[in-house]
Design a binder for these strands. Structure first.
Length: 419
RNA sequence: GGAGAGGUGGCCGAGCGGUCGAAGGCGGCUCCCUGCUAAGGAGUUGAGCGGGUUUCCCCGCUCCGAGGGUUCAAAUCCCUCCCUCUCCGCCA
């Protein structure tokens, strides 16, 4: 959520920056400003009335004590009248506030000035590459062929149990999945200073509002029936909201959290995209990294975060590149995002395996995560998140990059001790 | 799921219709005392929003688990919900 004070004091700046995402936001800002004005006028009127009412009410107490019954009764009537007006104004304000909040919650974050301006992923900027894509002396197979032939990936039965984009894994594949999770968690906790966390995967709507998935992206989420709970699309949701509505002490920062969780996404709007294999599933495993830091540190921390995620691919010796997302491809909550893309031989291109973002105070403001500085003043923290990494996609990358001519595949050296 | 108890400021804990944003204690901060430390003394110490002044000062509104209700007036009374604890039941 953007600071309404910023929108109020500098609407042109906000519009200009948001237009690099999409031109349509300009109109939205104007609407917000109009509703905000309406809202504040109502608040002023209401508060003046209440102040008056409170004053008289206190008097009534005094009058009764002094035995001035008649005067007290007269004052009662007066308050009665005020209450009627207050009631009406309060209803109006509630309406206006609802509209105001919805609008404000629907505005995306302002891209950092360093983010390249562009329309879509075509205009993302490659930052660096690591590793050489392997040259095969045979035609490399897609992982679904390898997996089915080996009898370790079962798409048919996945569909039987749950529908399309669900997969069953047996034996070797299931075990590698588990080994990868351990490898990643060990790396981040032992080498990068993260605290391992285990979280619920069902969360309340306000939690998803905190990180930005709601109210705008409800169609991407699974909601349980009979209860007001949603399945998390990423552990970023649970981890970041750990400190929702808290005021942290300055010396508690930074906080580094990592968690393995399954993630659930409806993949609405991705019909026909990546339908084969395990690249895009409704349920997938991910090890997530979340940082809660002081504002002045957040961009340094973002660079570190990307490198921490990259380290996993380096250990697994999988070739990858890092790209910086352009304004048009930036996620709703992010100010700046680096994607890590792993080499996928069967597609002859790099595919996203991690997304690392600094949301600055955008999520902190929604989730009310603050810290108290040495002078006792409260500030919003900055929150960052990144995949470290998407586990299913890592498995897929291993299967394809390490595949052999005989239809099997080798195991990266580091993984062997986890098997 | 059933029965009971309870949810108050950073923490503990009093208040049970007006004088309560809330006693008291602990903790934090400032000052005094002190050769230093400990002890002692004095003061101060919640958050959000709106407005004024424009800086860190003032004014107003709101917040005592959440939401409703009664009342001129609710932390205090009533209703609903949520959460915690104890016991029972069920269960991986």
């Amino acid at each position: 959520m953007l600071d309404i004070k910023l929108i109020r004091s500098n609407p042109d700046f906000v519009k200009e920056r948001l237009s690099t995402r999409d031109k349509a936001y300009s109109k939205m800002i104007d609407e917000i400003l109009a509703v905000d004005e309406e809202r504040r006028a109502l608040i002023k009127e209401l508060e003046d009335l209440k102040a008056e009412k409170n004053r008289i009410s206190k008097q009534i107490g005094v009058l009764f004590r002094e035995g001035k019954k008649e005067e007290a009764e007269k004052a009662k009537e007066e308050v009665h009248a005020k209450n009627k007006k207050i009631d009406q104004l309060e209803r109006e304000l509630k309406d206006v506030e609802k509209r105001f909040n919805y609008l404000l919650l629907s505005v995306p974050n302002i891209p950092h000035p360093s983010v390249p301006v562009g329309e879509d992923e075509e205009e993302n900027v490659e930052i660096r590459r690591w590793g050489e894509p392997r040259r095969f002396d045979f035609e490399p197979l897609p992982h679904w062929d390898i997996g089915e032939k080996m009898g370790i990936l079962d798409f048919e039965r996945g569909a039987k149990l749950s529908g399309s984009r669900f997969t069953v894994m047996y034996g070797y594949a299931a075990k590698i999945e588990r080994a990868l999770i351990s490898l990643m968690l060990d790396l981040h906790t032992k080498k990068h200073g993260y605290t391992e966390v285990w979280t619920p995967v069902l969360v309340k709507p306000e939690i998803l509002t905190g990180t930005g998935q709601l109210p705008k992206f409800e169609e991407d989420l699974y909601k349980v029936c009979d209860e007001d709970l949603y399945l998390i699309p990423t552990a970023e949701v649970s981890l970041t909201n750990l400190h929702a509505n808290e005021i942290l002490k300055e010396e508690e920062l930074p906080k580094y959290y990592t968690a393995y969780t399954p993630c659930f996404r409806r993949e609405a709007g991705s019909h026909g995209k990546d339908v084969r294999g395990i690249l895009r599933q409704h349920q997938f495993d991910k090890v997530e990294l979340v940082k809660i830091v002081k504002p002045e540190d957040s961009y340094n921390e973002l660079e570190k975060l990307v490198k921490e995620a990259e380290k996993v691919l380096q250990l697994l010796e999988l070739p990858y590149r890092v790209v910086e997302l352009c304004t048009g491809d930036l996620g709703f909550s992010a100010s700046k995002t680096y994607d890590i893309e792993v080499w996928v031989p069967s597609q002859n291109r790099y595919r996203e395996i991690s997304s690392c973002s600094n949301t600055e105070d955008f999520q902190a403001r929604r989730a009310k995560i603050r810290y108290k500085d040495k002078e006792g003043k409260n500030h919003f923290v900055h929150t960052l998140n990144g995949s470290g990494l998407a586990v299913g996609r890592t498995l897929l990358a291993i299967m394809e990059n390490y595949q052999r001519k005989d239809g099997g595949f080798d195991l990266p050296e580091v993984l062997k001790k986890y098997m």
